[in-house]
Design a protein around this nucleic acid. Structure first.
Lengths: 124, 124, 124, 124
DNA sequence: TTTT
DNA sequence: TTTT
């Protein structure tokens, strides 16, 4: 069994770091990935792919990325189902991210101000 | 922008070939992909990943595969949204498959009966 | 920067586990990966891809695989250069494997005899 | 059988377009892909991965890329062997590229001068 | 609910 | 040096 996803796209929003009840860092984000061709109307289309990031990767992403940042993401597709408020079964698909690569050349200002050592990932 | 998915898993059902209004062969299938570790309760978990296959790949898959067949799938993640009957917006994620690899050793009977040349893909 | 390889192919030989000077388990293997099309002479072609596996993955591969086993491999391409006996610079490319998936249905006999718990990876 | 490679890295040289005897556009290039961690000496390491690009992709790459350009590459690993001048057998590994994605934000000057429509791939 |  |  193999389940492997590679994406390069842009963050649709500033990432917001949260923590699980047990204190595990955790981040939900949506990647906008433009399709490499135009549709019949000559328009560019985009897939908005929902991703979950955990632990150190979540912390780094929230530190070094913002709305519009270009990132690479390695992970797996995960599916789950649950019932919504009206008792209807909903099927959800998301990418469970195990690795994030920062592909923007410019480092965010916050970093240089603090003089902090960037993770090597941030140098594409 | 990169959007790349690789899966190896088993078909949850016999694939059913259909055709679009314009006569394009088309196949919807769900791949069961076991996760490679056990959860906290010691249970194996499985992702059920919804896939769409088109054209010749759809025809070959419906010919040479059945419920339980082990296949490899290359494609991209696609997202779309629509309104359900109650006017609620639903977000759907699926894998748009561009290549199928048949990984079962045994060829299906249908094929040997017809004496037809198997696509090379079928020899893993 | 992204460097991601996914292969499914067959072992060209029985894998041979060795250990580094520091006692780290280590395995070199070649995967035969058939190309999915015929060349101009109507022949199937095959890529023989050199791989390195480390630690627990190396031990499991040597235990559960043999010449001809179908496996999936996730890893990265690595390059290095060195001088051969005549002082000529040689450029070598190999796949550094971080994950192995066992895709043969039958488990090797050795295992059932010993009654040992198979890694979940071995159930494709 | 699956053989899938995804790389994001930088061109080590200006790409040089050539043509086969039959007039097929063709490009050899080396991608520098930094490893995402430091070695024991605290140094960044880089894999220099030899790639072959064909046809339209070769033409676009030579038009829109130059030394240092950040690109994404999808392809397969191919191996071949040949004899060198001294009759020694050499084993070569390369990436056969089927898709190139241009990930630099700035479009090369050549393009705006000619006023030509950029392939959509060039808008990351 | 969407990015360049 | 090659697998089914």
């Amino acid at each position: 069994m193999i389940n492997q996803v590679t994406l390069v796209g842009r963050l649709t929003k500033d990432p917001e770091l949260t923590y699980t009840a047990l204190g595990r860092p955790f981040l939900q984000m949506t990647l906008a990935v433009n399709r490499p061709y135009r549709n019949q109307q000559g328009m560019t289309e985009t897939d908005f792919i929902y991703c979950k990031v955990w632990n150190k990767s979540a912390e780094n992403t929230s530190k070094y990325c913002q709305k519009g940042s270009l990132i690479g993401v390695l992970g797996t597709i995960q599916t789950r189902s649950y019932e919504d408020q009206e008792g209807k079964r909903i099927y959800a698909t998301e990418v469970n991210v195990h690795t994030v690569r920062f592909l923007d050349k410019k480092r965010p200002n916050a970093e240089s101000e603090e003089g902090e050592l960037l993770p090597i990932l941030n140098l594409p």
